[in-house]
Nucleic acid binder design. Structure first.
Ligand SMILES: [Mn+2]
Ligand SMILES: [Mn+2]
Ligand SMILES: [Mn+2]
Ligand SMILES: [Mn+2]
Lengths: 227, 227
DNA sequence: TATTTAACTTAAGCTTGCTTAAGTTTTCAA
DNA sequence: TTGAAAACTTAAGCAAGCTTAAGTTAAATA
C-alpha cells in the first residue's frame, strides 16, 4: 500500500476531521456517508483503504479515527481550503458563500508551492473569512481566543463577531444580506425564554436571531475596547 | 450519451485544439497519445466516446477533428487556463513557468462564475502572460496583431516581443533567467547562415538564440514607435 | 500490383470509487 | 437473556480511464 492523494480520499479525511468530537474521536461510517452523500457501503469500503494506507484506525462496526498521519493530511486540506477562501475574498471580493463553494473544489488542486505563496501574500493569516483557524504548514492551529456562542452570550454585554459556522450556505447568504461581517461589534439586547431567540444590536440596527442561527455565531468579549 | 466534463475529456479536447493545423484540422490519435502521454489505445477509446458525445468527428484510422461544440468547450478550457495564469501573475507575481504548471490543474476547477470574476478583475484582458490570446466567454478570440517569428525577422529592425510559446518549461525558465519579459523591445543584430542562430539586442544586452529558440518567439514590428 | 511495415484499433483486463442487494453484528427493549 | 430492529459490512457489479497484447487497415516500397 503506497501513495495516495486523490480528491475523494482528501474529502474523506477532511470530513472525518470535521465530524469528530474533541473527546471521542471516532466517527461512524454511516455519519461519514451522510455528510459525503455517498452510500454506507462506499464509506466502509474507503475505511478499509484508508486503514491500509495508515491514515485511519478502523475496526468493522467500530467507526474510524484519524491517525497522526491522517490528521496531518486532513489539516493540510483544511489549510488549503481556508487560504483559498481568504485569497479569493481579498482579491475578488466574493461573498462568504461564493468563496466557500469555490474553495471546496480548489482545495484539492494547487501545489504546496502555490499555497505557500498565497499564505505569504496574505501575510500568514491565522483566520479565514468565517473566522475559522488556518493551520500552518506544519499542521499547527493558531491559538484561539475565548469565545462564546451567541446562544450563551450575556444579555447587555458587548461582543465582536468572531466566527460564523459555514456549514449552511443559505445561512451565510442571509447574514451577508443583513450586512453582517466578521469582527463587527454587537450588543446582546435580550433573550426570549420561549424559543431562546436573541435580540441584538449591530451597527445601530436591531436584529432577532432564532436559537438555530445564534448557535452558529461565536463571539469574543469586547470589554474594555472601543464601543 | 449525455453529460460530460471530466478533467480527462477536457484535456483531450484542449489538446486536439492545440495540435490541429489551421488547414487540415484532423489530428491523429497517435499524435494525441504522445502529447497526453497515454497509450494509443487510450486515445482511440476516448475518440469514440467524444464522438458519441458529439464533440469530435471520428472515423477509425482517419483521426479526429473537433466539432463546433467540441471546439467551444476546448476554447473554454483554454480561456480558463490563460485567465488563471494572468491572475496568478498579477496577484502573486509567479514566473512564466510556475504559473503555467499551476494553471494546468486549475483550468479544470473554478466555476464559470469565478472565471468571470477573474476576467473582470483583470479588466477583460486579450492576452495572457505568454502573449497567448484569451478567448472571451463566447469562445471568440481577440484580433491578433501581425507578427513574425524571430527566425523570420528582418536583420537590423526593431520589434516588440509579443508572444513566447510555452510548450517547454525549461525554455520559459531560461528566458526568465535572461530577464526577458513580454513587450520588451528587441533589435535583430544578425543571423548566422550556418545554423540560423540569431543575435539580438534587448535592454542594451546582446543575446544569441539558436534557431530552436528563435522559433518560439513571436515579434511585432516596432516601426515608428519609441526606441 | 503485391507485400511488407507502420499506424491505428479492438480485446481483455486492471484500479478507483461508486451503487444496490444480501449478509453480519450490535444494540436495546421486552 | 433473547430476539427484533438498527447499524454496519461484504458481495457483486458498473463506469471511467487507463494498460498490454492481439488484431486490422493503410501506406510505402519494390
Ligand atoms: Mn473537497
Ligand atoms: Mn471557512
Ligand atoms: Mn489540464
Ligand atoms: Mn499561456
Amino acid at each position: 500500500m503506497e501513495i495516495m492523494n486523490t480528491i475523494s480520499k482528501e474529502n474523506y479525511l477532511k470530513t472525518i476531521y470535521q465530524i469528530k468530537k474533541p473527546k471521542s474521536k471516532k466517527v461512524s461510517t454511516a455519519h461519514l456517508a451522510k455528510r459525503l452523500e455517498v452510500s454506507n457501503a462506499a464509506t466502509s469500503d474507503m475505511a478499509k483503504k484508508l486503514f491500509d494506507l495508515g491514515l485511519v484506525k478502523y475496526q468493522p462496526y467500530r467507526g474510524v479515527e484519524l491517525t497522526a498521519k491522517g490528521e496531518k493530511l486532513a489539516l493540510n486540506v483544511i489549510r488549503r481550503h481556508r487560504l483559498w477562501e481568504l485569497f479569493l475574498i481579498k482579491t475578488l471580493n466574493l461573498s462568504w458563500s461564493e468563496v466557500h463553494t469555490e474553495a471546496e473544489r480548489l482545495e484539492h488542486q494547487a501545489s504546496d508551492f502555490l499555497i505557500d505563496r498565497i499564505d505569504e501574500y496574505l501575510d500568514y493569516p491565522d483566520f479565514d473569512p468565517h473566522g475559522d483557524p488556518i493551520p500552518n504548514k506544519n499542521g499547527e492551529l493558531p491559538v484561539q481566543p475565548d469565545s462564546v456562542k451567541l446562544t450563551a452570550a450575556e444579555v447587555g454585554k458587548f461582543y465582536f463577531i468572531h466566527r460564523v459556522k459555514n456549514d449552511d450556505i443559505k445561512l451565510l447568504d442571509y447574514l451577508t444580506e443583513l450586512g453582517l461581517k466578521l469582527n463587527m461589534q454587537l450588543q446582546v439586547l435580550s433573550r426570549l425564554e420561549f424559543d431562546n431567540s436573541v435580540r441584538v444590536k449591530i451597527n445601530n440596527k436591531e436584529h432577532s436571531f432564532s436559537e438555530k442561527i445564534a448557535e452558529k455565531l461565536s463571539l469574543v468579549s469586547a470589554d474594555g475596547e472601543k464601543r
